[in-house]
Design a protein around this nucleic acid. Structure first.
Length: 108
DNA sequence: GACATGACCCGCG
DNA sequence: CCGCGGGCCATGT
C-alpha cells in the first residue's frame, strides 16, 4: 500500500509549510487550524512525513513547547538534531530545553 | 468493520 | 511534583 498522502495529511503539511522560518507551532494549534480535535493525529501524519525534508516538520513541537519527537524517535540523536535545526533557523531555547514563546507561531 | 498504535493533551488525586 | 486514566482523531493490519 502506498497511501502516503491523504487529504487530512495534506492539510497538515500545508499548515506546517505556512510556519515561517525562525518560528514554531504546536500540535494543538495545528490541529485547530485544520479543524481537528486531536493533536495526536497530527503527530501521526508528521511522523510519516513523506514530504520530508521539504516540509519543516521540525517546526512542530508539543504544546508545552518541548521537542517531543523527530524522525520517528521520541528521544535520541534524531531529537538532538531537531534542536540543532531549530537553533540554526533562529529559534531560541531556554535552560529547560523549551522553545521561547516569542518563536511560537499561532497561525494568526 | 473491529482492534491496536501513536512525534498528544488535560484533569485528578 | 509525579503517576494514572480518559478522551480524541487518523492510519494500518
Amino acid at each position: 500500500m502506498n497511501p502516503n498522502v491523504t487529504p487530512f495529511r495534506q492539510r497538515v503539511f500545508d499548515a506546517c509549510s505556512r510556519v515561517p522560518k525562525g518560528q514554531v507551532t504546536t500540535y494543538k494549534l495545528l490541529a485547530e487550524e485544520i479543524d481537528c480535535g486531536s493533536s495526536q493525529a497530527i503527530g501521526q501524519a508528521l511522523k510519516h512525513n513523506p514530504f520530508a525534508p521539504q516540509v519543516p516538520c521540525h517546526r512542530v513541537i508539543a504544546t508545552n513547547r518541548t521537542l517531543h519527537g523527530f524522525h520517528g524517535e521520541t528521544s535520541g540523536p534524531q531529537l538532538d538534531r531537531k534542536r540543532q535545526l531549530l537553533e540554526g533557523e533562529g529559534v531560541a531555547f531556554d535552560e529547560q530545553g523549551r522553545v521561547v514563546r516569542d518563536c511560537l507561531f499561532t497561525f494568526k
